[in-house]
Amino acid sequence: MNWMHWVRPRLWTLLAMGTLLVALVFTFLSRRAFDHQQYLDLSLFDGADRFEQVLKSPPAFAAYRTASGAQELLGYVAFGAGPGYAGSIATRTLISPAGHIIAAEVLEHTETPGYIRAVLASDFLRRLRGKELADAFMVGQDLDGVTKATISSRGIAQGVRQASHAMGREEFGLTIPEPKIPVNIGLKEIVLTALLLLTVIGTQLRIPRLRWFVQIGSILFVGFWFNSTISLANVGGLLLGFVPPWRQNLWWYIWVLGIPLFTLVRGQSINCTWLCPFGATQELLAKVGGGQIRCRPEYEKRLRRVRFGLAWLAMLLVFLVGSPGVAGYEPFGTLFGFQGLVVHWITLVVILVGALFVRRLWCSFLCPVGVMDELTWKLGRRIRGLLKGRLDGGETEPKAGGTPV
């Protein structure tokens, strides 16, 4: 039968896509709203025996002690949420009857776990204690963010600000103006735009020498300075519908949306070979170690399928757990952000030592972002081929291969 001829060579791809689609649908159907009730605990306030809701949105409650007959206000508990790097972060803020922050906590998140670990390991949450409800709670103004986890710190601050300002206005009668969130155009946005423009010029005008310049810039800035390598967490977050507010995350729109969009429109890979700082690091290591160890093409072709298996498993986990950060197994954050568990560090050492002898070990056999990149440029070429075929009035087969320039 004709359709069997079409299905057979694509069986694994169809199965992989089908299972991911089912998992994605399952995630959306089973998605539950944040349930603050489970985090309302009387033991939060010493001697409290009753909560009374004082705000609906964001939810906030007053805690009372009524055992002695008289009603004594012990404090407030208010919930909030803010966007992180790859997902949302839910917070709980305890407020004293006088209107000071007693404590702030992270309750749930779909953020990249490494960044949350970095924030929790710092004294960021402790620095929120004692602040007043009308304070700005803005990283860079009255709060210092956590180095290499600035976006997560900003998300937590936003959750606390949301709760505090709502309580200040509604319960304490304070006049708190809406915070003016400036459009963030800083060094990060400028450098990322410059690197992207240089890449577009280099690939479109075919100037391969620019590639080394971009790669060095990428290692220094995208890697070590900003720690903003595109990761599976970004892709997973996007597929789960996470889009950060643009004013403070302009870089995200330039980088995480701009690169795949260019790849799709031009049918050409630019992330892996030009802009990825981890790929560039491996290329430098191969210059040092020779990078001469390789497989015969038939073995290499088979081994390269490992990337697809890992990317499929990771995406499946992202969808089933509903958290994009959980499956980001890339060692990018460990190298550039100096964050990670023991297993992350061991993986990084294995990959970097391996990359001395096997050229781009990670990219060739393991990188899930490479898989996404390949699927995107292939889709782009197919669309271009179809459009060209339609314009020419005939079928045009897209050109195979993934040459960067």
């Binding site: 776990p113 160890i293 390789r294 497989c295 015969r296 073995y299 290499e300 081994l303 490992v306 890992l310 498993l313 990771a314 986990l317 757990v321 958290s323 959980v326 499956a327 197994y329 568990l341 297993v343 992350h344 061991i346 993986t347 294995v350 990959i351 391996g354 002898f357 096997v358 070990l361 990670w362 056999f365 393991l366």
Partner: peptide, 30 residues
């Protein structure tokens, strides 16, 4: 299989084991 191919296979296998351990650790820690 040549010696160089064994090295590549070994490195990839080791990395896959570490990646699976990472995924297990992160999901378990949720």
């Amino acid at each position: 299989m040549k010696g160089s191919e064994r090295i590549v296979f070994g490195l990839v296998l080791l990395a896959v084991v570490l990646i699976l351990t990472t995924l297990y650790t992160e999901v378990k820690g949720m």
